[in-house]
Nucleic acid binder design. Structure first.
Length: 787
DNA sequence: TCGGTTGAGTTTTTT
DNA sequence: ACTCAACCGA
């Protein structure tokens, strides 16, 4: 990869006014008076900030000050007056990142520049564009955005309408397919035939039907936000041209996480007419931290950047400011096992620090105990709990730690997990608001029509539904007409009548009352609040609390509509107390964070790397797991402690496990295998039993996992073939990918576990098979036979 | 309308 | 093994 060095005259081109030649007194004067925000940047960072013309790819390794560079770059463009805030497109992946960037830019250039309107997530920017041009893609301006839950309910209806058994063909699965297609930018007519065949042989038909339903509901799902804007751009050159010229500078964060649809979206915006010069697009990312392939991210986008944007300048940020060299070297050595990297060599000027530790535990319980003890020890030494984190591969691992911490009385916080707006009570409340504001919102209406119970059962709902479908009117209107006929039972009829009256009344108050006040009235009068007040279950008080929080956060918005808009895209719960706590989260959730001490439990084959990742994606899956390991290690500033257990309960069964191959891939000079004996003598008093009782049979060090770890200390040791870790299925897959299977699409096959089915797609030796009784699955060809 | 039973799924998760 | 959702019977 050839870095194109910066042209020395570059500064002059981009600076607002012509400046004297570099090297002279004036240049020195200019350097001295360089804006304060440039101070303290290293050479590469500064280059990344100042190279503002043309395509730039910034490869920002872990801990190299990426966010700082990004925000400084934006501040720089604004300060030089090269663009007004409204002419800069800055895309992030999460709302959190967008918020952070906004705050930091504000901090750099003062409050003088008002917020940038086009700084946000792909999705929020798309909403903004779509609201302006909704009609052009067949939507009304006030279209609703469905979340995953709505999507699945809608798909269920579509599946049922197609006369399919929604048991055998679960809506969730269809949702996954459609999501995948949308991630790849595929509209129903573009779905490849193999894929289309996948879901009961009518994947594309159902996709089409689903899209049609969305249009009649005046709704879009998350994927559509991107796709509809792409369609808008493609079909309306003038609209596209307008945005192309508007965005003089484009900036994309976490470029390694973009999917095909997002890529297409960017490509459209970055297109420049013949002879107009290259676009000023800057993509920032780290191919080594691409960990979202499973949800459609294409690392390829970043690997291909220079091809997509000829003449691109590639800048590598390799100076790490976060970790000690032991941690950094361990991580670098590990990630070097991946192929197809752009390649970076991180270095640090910091101390060597402690070595990365590897500890073997007998089982997951002991693992949690050891980590708990170590945390307490650090705490006694005066380290803050806020500066410690446990990063797990899968969320089920968290429970063991939570149990342990509760026992110890150790305060902890779980990061991630279900979001605020995903909770049932919040979604119900929002459904009430949506139904009030948008009478045509069938999904919202259906959700709360019988919540709380008001005697409008399934039968009634189905009647309403049928009438609405038959006449092509919204359900609420259908319901209204039904209450005026004799079709419904008196009881259902009267309570439906009452509900509709209420909605009409609330709607009448929309302009008269502040939204939060009206919302409170709606929740009160509908009996929703009362429902939870009467609920005697343990979580009812919490739910009421959440509802209050919802009302509180509503006050900050101009209107109810504005609030609904916000909540469908944003709304994350940042409920953090001020007490010091240990953080507990998945490795995925940890990206972008850093901690003094990081505990990484569960480094075992099958768990990490995860079996399913290997099974489904072979070598690519393994590499993504390895990147995940890399992300985990590089979160640590001073200490990284790895653990593996020789026994773990998986789906209820105790299994003995082999230590992760990733442990073998660490450089021995930076790793220390910990003698658990020293930890055992700590006066904890808890849960020694299992460990101690095993003592007479020999120490922990006789376990296979431990011995394996020991052998790693001496890499010269010859491994007996029978001592190799058990061959993992995915490994075979990884090795043999590329070998064509002898099967063809459409062939009928038999599988031991899933029965009969038809091959719907062939990918090397991986087959996608639509089974007659178990839906569609991906399996290895060796597991099926022709029939 | 509730509650017990049955069955399916059990990696990662944003928007 | 365990959880959670959907379903069926009282």
């Amino acid at each position: 990869m050839a870095d194109r060095r910066i042209d020395p005259s570059h500064d002059e081109i981009t600076a607002p006014a012509a400046l004297p030649r570099p090297g002279g007194i004036a240049a020195r004067a200019r350097a001295a008076s360089a804006p304060a925000y440039l101070e303290g940047l290293n050479a590469e960072q500064r280059r990344a900030v100042e190279t503002i013309d043309g395509p730039v790819l910034v490869l920002a390794g872990a801990g190299t000050g990426k966010t700082r560079v990004l925000t400084t770059r934006l501040a720089h463009i604004l300060t030089l007056g090269l663009a007004r805030p409204g002419q800069i497109l800055a895309v992030t992946f999460t709302n959190k990142a967008a918020r952070e960037m906004r705050e930091r830019i504000g901090g750099l250039i003062g409050e003088s520049v008002e917020g940038m309107p086009w700084l946000g997530t792909f999705h929020s920017i798309c909403v903004k564009i779509l609201r302006r041009h909704a009609e052009a893609v067949g939507l009304k301006r006030d279209f609703t955005i469905l979340d995953t839950d709505d999507q699945i309910r809608l798909m269920k209806q579509v599946i049922q309408a197609a006369d399919l058994d929604d048991k055998r063909w679960p809506a969730r699965q269809l949702a996954a397919y459609i999501d995948g297609w949308k991630n790849r930018g595929l509209t129903p007519d573009k779905v490849p035939s193999g894929d289309a065949y996948a879901f009961a042989g009518q994947g594309d038909e159902l996709y089409k039907a689903y899209q049609a339903r969305l249009k009649t509901l005046n709704a879009v799902d998350f994927g559509d936000l991107l796709l509809e804007v792409i369609r808008l751009f493609r079909e309306n050159q003038d609209v596209l041209a307008d945005f192309q010229s508007r965005f003089r500078y484009m900036l994309v964060d976490e470029y390694q996480d973009t999917n095909v649809a997002q890529y297409l979206w960017l490509r459209l915006l970055a297109q420049r007419p013949e002879g107009a010069g290259p676009p000023n697009i800057c993509c920032v990312g780290d191919d080594d931290q691409s960990i979202y392939g499973w949800r459609g991210a294409e690392v390829d986008n970043i690997l291909r950047f220079e091809k997509d944007f000829p003449g691109a300048v590639v800048i590598r940020l390799e100076q790490n400011y976060r970790s000690t060299s032991n941690i950094l070297d361990a991580a670098s050595h590990l990630i070097a096992h991946n192929e197809g990297r752009l390649g970076k060599t991180l270095h640090t000027q910091g101390d060597a620090g402690d070595k990365v530790t590897v500890t073997c535990a007998w089982d997951s319980e002991e693992e949690a105990r050891l980590i708990g003890e170590e945390i307490e020890q650090l705490q006694r030494r005066g380290e803050s709990l806020d500066d410690m984190a446990i990063l797990v591969r899968a969320s089920f691992q968290m429970r063991e730690f939570e149990d342990r911490f509760v026992t110890l009385g150790l305060p902890y916080r779980v990061i991630g997990g279900p979001r605020f707006y995903e909770r049932a009570e919040i979604r119900d409340a929002i459904a009430y608001l949506r139904a009030t504001l948008q009478p045509a919102d069938d999904l919202a209406f259906e959700r709360i029509v019988n919540t709380p119970r008001r005697g409008i059962g399934d039968a009634t709902v189905r009647t309403i539904h049928d009438v609405a479908r038959a006449r092509g009117i919204p359900m609420m209107q259908a319901a209204l007409e039904l209450t005026e006929s004799e079709e419904l039972k008196p009881r259902a009829r009267s309570s439906l009548r009452a509900l509709l009256d209420s909605f009409a009344r609330w709607r009448g108050q929309l302009d008269a009352l502040p939204q939060a006040e009206l919302a409170a009235i709606i929740l009160e009068e509908s009996g929703y609040t009362e429902m939870w007040q009467r609920d005697r279950s343990a979580d009812a008080p919490g739910r009421l609390e959440n509802l209050k929080e919802l009302l509180r956060s509503m006050e900050e918005f101009e209107s109810m509509l504005g609030f609904l808009e916000h909540i469908s895209l944003v709304m994350d719960s940042d409920a953090g107390g001020d007490e010091e706590k240990v953080s507990l989260m998945t490795l995925h959730a940890a990206k972008g964070l850093e901690f003094g001490t990081v505990f990484l439990p569960g480094w075992e084959e099958g768990l990490f790397p995860h079996q399913r990742s290997l099974d489904e994606n072979g070598r690519a899956g393994l590499e993504e797991e390895r990147r995940l390991a890399y992300v985990g290690l590089t979160r640590a500033k001073r200490r990284a402690a790895l653990f593996f257990a020789t026994n773990r309960r998986i789906h209820g069964l105790w299994q003995s496990t082999a230590s992760s191959r990733f442990l073998d891939e660490l450089p021995e000079s930076n790793v220390e295998v910990v003698d658990t004996g020293s930890l055992r003598t700590s006066p904890s008093g808890y849960g020694h039993s299992r460990f101690d009782s095993r003592e007479p049979f020999g120490s922990t060090y006789s376990t296979p996992g431990w011995q394996r770890a020991q052998r790693n200390k001496d890499r010269a040791a010859v491994r007996n073939p029978w001592n190799e870790p058990p061959l993992i299925e995915g490994e075979v897959l990884a090795r043999s990918t590329g070998a064509e299977s002898g099967y063809a699409v459409g062939e009928r096959v038999f599988h031991q576990k899933f029965g009969y089915g038809r091959v719907s797609a062939v990918d090397g030796n991986k087959l996608t098979i639509a089974f007659e009784h178990s839906g569609s699955k991906r399996v290895l060809d060796s597991f099926v036979e022709r029939h």
